[in-house]
Amino acid sequence: MAENVKNYKKLNMTKIEAKWGYIFISPWIIGTSVFILFPVIASFILAFCSWDIVSPVQFVGFGNFIEIFTKDTNFWVSLWNTFYYTLFSVPLGIIGSIIVALLMNQKWKTVRLLRTIYYLPSVTAGVASSIIWMWLFNPYSGLINYFLGQLGIQGPMWLASETWAKPAFIIMSLWGVGGNMIIYLAGLQGIPRQLYEAADIDGAGSFDKFRYVTLPMLTPVIFFNLILSIVWSFQVFTQAYVMTGGTGSPGRSTLFYVLYLYQVAFKYHKMGYASALALVLFAIILIFTLIQFKFSKNWVYYESEMKK
């Protein structure tokens, strides 16, 4: 009898606790339903429609997708531009940030100041830094071509050249490696000292220690970072918009995917078509992420496996 009451009380308590749990997370439930769940579903529906906001929605079936894949050269150009950008900026960015993190993991007196300097550019990302880089890349009055000239190299036309505009964006993206550097630095500091001591006893040199201790221990962080870097890199927009005035010039050489999507949606008001483009982007990112998860078993090292 007494036990029953106790059980009932306990049950009641769990119910109350559950109720309060839901109350506390309710802003997220509402927010996610309204700003994420509903829009994602709506996007799926809109992608099969033609709609310019003003006139009524028209169902077009797979029409948008057929047009995207068979007729729309802008789609292929912007996809290629974005792939190109991702293909270079992501690996170079990861290698760069690991190198900087390794340097910033040394025990120098000024290391805190240096970390600040490397990290700073990543928080200034946006319109202002795009404007600075626009000038740095100016073929005549920019610092980059001036320094190249000092080295005896005739600098290219950068943002005015169809060949060199994308590399310019990639170089600019490398300026922001500090953001990832902090993540790798935290990863490096989480590696147990005993591993290095054991390596020392085995007579390992600095390179061996990096190859057989640091790098494997860092792979989970690299994996996490690789996935997010690709997601972000596919969304490059602000720099391209500011530096080309929203056109993706010269030619279509800096018409990145999201810039094109923006033009379709907010310049030409083709909401259905833009939704279809957004879904294609989503699918591409999803496929990339799944491929990475599939191959991650071959190179990502998890400590827990060791304990088995």
Binding site: F35, I36, F38, P39, V40, A42, S43, L46, I227, V231, F234, Q235, V258, L261, A265, M271, A274, S275, A278, L279, L281, F282, I285, L286, T289
Partner: peptide, 11 residues
């Protein structure tokens, strides 16, 4: 993981 562009238009 959902790119902001997917939710941008309906929002």
């Amino acid at each position: 993981m959902i790119p902001a562009q997917v939710t941008m238009i309906p929002t």
